[in-house]
């Protein structure tokens, strides 16, 4: 979004000047074309986005509020919520540290093989979730590279919580790094260089100069990373083993309830994840707004 479009959205703008009005005429469409295009786009979005979203909450509450509350507070659901929160609580901070380190190396220094490194960071995005889970089975599973050794020491990774955490980390590797890299590249390193020349050490430079500059981008990446960490299905499904109350995350619990034809409960648990998605979108919109505000202040 350009700053111009932001001001037009934020302020009730007066009618455009006459020369603008003229421009609008030759570079815009007749009213009936505009209305048809808007109508078609909104119909498409309604069918494919809004109706599915509303149906989640409708199906969740179809059997009443009591059934809804019972479905999300029964022990297996609570265990699933706990596991989902645990996996995200490990995966997100770990990928946050990775994202900052990768962005620092890539944005602040010149070295050979940089674009290859950026492509490698993006790799987990292009791998099918099922394949992401499978590769961890090949490393840590009983038939895998480390399987016999792990079995000897009685360490379980696949079909246990560590496998779920690892698969979650894999699918969320790129989120924070890919937000920070372009942001820090655009900001350059003059401010950090000034801090170092004035006697600040590396950590002081990072926490006092870099971090305040990247905080919105960091928050944005963290929000997206968290949403994916809590919602991941395919990769986690392969490594989980689907043990009820023990290795089931929220999305896997939804699947189990649905396959047992317990639709109201499945949608009740799904509605928690849909709420998470809505909160994510709201936060994301807020951060985008604040970020643009900061850019505008920096420009003036």
């Amino acid at each position: 979004m350009t700053p111009q479009s932001m001001t037009t959205a934020a302020l009730p703008t007066p009618a455009p000047a006459t020369d603008l009005g003229h421009r609008r005429e030759i570079t815009s469409e007749p009213a009936w074309v505009r209305k048809t295009l808007i109508g078609t786009a909104l119909t498409f979005l309604t069918l494919f986005l809004f109706v599915p979203l509303i149906s989640v909450f409708y199906e969740a509450l179809k059997k009443g509020v009591d059934a809804y509350l019972a479905a999300i507070t029964e022990p297996d659901a609570v265990a699933a919520i706990q596991l989902t929160l645990t996996a995200a609580a490990i995966a997100v901070p770990v990928n946050l540290v990775f994202g900052v380190a990768a962005a620092w190396a890539i944005a602040k220094f010149e070295f050979r093989g940089k674009s290859l490194l950026i492509t490698l960071i993006d790799l987990p995005f292009s791998v099918s979730p099922v394949v992401s889970g499978l590769i961890y089975v090949l490393v840590f599973g009983l038939q895998g590279w480390l399987g016999p050794w792990l079995a000897e020491y009685d360490i379980k990774i696949i079909f246990a919580v560590p496998g779920i955490v690892l698969a979650t980390i894999f699918v969320t590797v790129p989120f924070i790094a890919r937000e920070l890299i372009p942001l820090m590249q655009a900001q350059g390193s003059e401010e950090e260089e000034a801090a170092v020349v004035l006697g600040a050490n590396g950590w002081q430079t990072f926490f006092r100069v870099t971090l305040p500059n990247i905080k919105w981008g960091l928050l944005y990446g963290t929000i997206l990373c968290n949403a994916r960490a809590m919602g991941e299905f395919g990769a986690v499904s392969v490594v989980s083993g689907h043990i009820r109350g023990s290795t089931n995350t929220l999305p896997l619990h939804v699947e189990i309830l649905y396959n047992e034809y317990n639709f109201a409960a499945a949608f009740a648990v799904a509605s928690l994840l849909a709420l998470l998605a809505l909160v994510t979108l709201a936060l994301k919109t807020l951060v985008e707004f604040r970020n643009r505000q900061q850019e505008n202040i920096d420009e003036h």
Partner: peptide
Amino acid sequence: LVDLPFALPTAVAGIA
């Protein structure tokens, strides 16, 4: 809301 499919877990989209 255009970003909903990015944010909504795939299992939820599937059953809906």
